[in-house]
Design a protein around this nucleic acid. Structure first.
Length: 271
DNA sequence: ATCGCCTCCTGCGCGC
DNA sequence: TGCGCGCAGGAGGCGA
């Protein structure tokens, strides 16, 4: 489900409700997520204040004075801000209740997400340490990416989905940013020119920023912590648009499979 | 190091 | 209406 814009939308939704609030209790209803939720989490978190809610790639980082809670939403996860007596739904796996009766609830039908704790410097956490720079920062540049692409013969779409090269971009925004850049998803990464790499980077930033402004993309079950859907879905040019006309030239959008994921592109505009 | 493939899991829409 | 099948916003981990 969630790519960077959806995770950022979630961050902005939960931060004002839980920052500077103290954890009163934690309930783990089903801890078998991608990795088992630490059964000591209730004891670890109780009485700790959330100092900040930040984001790195698609990970949410909840800082406390003793360590960080690291939350990934996987394919189908979401976080909701509720009050402590909110009715329970299927797949509501973890509740964090705060001292002002605010409830942060993790819901995840497919359970590909994760909730992890570390008391070490969070950026050195195993899952974070090898990530590419933040795509909306100036560190994510052609100076950084172009030399790396030169070493990869794999299709650019597949490389865009690899966290060592680009973070935050998943299947929707990879397809959309390639369309905006007139680059075929099938093009080997090492055949992109410097100019094409610069254009692609620019468009990744544009598309992520636009999607954040729209509250993300809701295909089926994403919603922000207050329950609102994301409206970027109305601006998708190619994702899920197979057999529909290209918005630019009216040629039929084509769907192919790359690395077990669907890719969509206009065979006339993208080369 | 790079690559291709597999896996975890539930729900939904489709065709028969 | 009821099935079985394929597919879905991710990404770590494996063997070659």
């Amino acid at each position: 489900m969630p790519e960077l814009p959806e995770v950022e939308t979630t961050r902005r939704g939960i931060a004002p409700a839980i920052e500077n609030n103290t954890v009163q209790s934690v309930t783990i209803r089903n801890g078998s997520l991608r990795w088992p939720v630490d059964s000591n989490l209730p004891d670890l978190l109780k009485g700790l204040k959330i100092l900040s809610v930040k984001r790195r790639a698609k990970y949410l980082l909840l800082a406390t004075e003793k360590g960080h809670l690291i939350i990934h939403l996987g394919m189908s996860g979401n976080l909701k801000i509720l009050t402590h007596n909110a009715p329970l739904q299927k797949h509501d796996h973890v509740d964090i209740v705060f001292n002002n009766n605010i409830l942060l609830r993790y819901h995840d039908p497919r359970r590909f997400g994760s909730i992890l704790w570390t008391d070490k410097p969070v950026n050195q956490f195993k899952l974070l340490v090898h990530l590419a720079p933040e795509p909306l920062s100036s560190d994510f540049s052609s100076e950084w990416l172009y030399p790396k692409l030169q070493k990869r013969k794999t299709a650019i779409k597949v490389v865009l989905m690899d966290n060592k090269y680009v973070v935050g971009v998943g299947n929707i925004y990879a397809n959309e940013s390639l369309f905006l850049s007139n680059i075929s998803p099938l093009k080997p990464a090492n055949t992109l020119s410097l100019k094409e790499t610069e254009l692609l980077i620019k468009n990744i930033k544009i598309i992520l920023e636009k999607a954040i402004e729209q509250g993300g993309t809701t295909l089926k079950d994403f919603s922000s912590p207050d329950g609102k859907p994301g409206y970027f879905v109305q601006q998708l040019s190619v994702y899920g648009q197979d057999n529909k006309p290209c918005p630019t030239c009216k040629t039929s959008i084509v769907k192919v499979t790359q690395a077990q994921r669907a890719s969509f592109y206009c065979p006339s505009c993208q080369h």
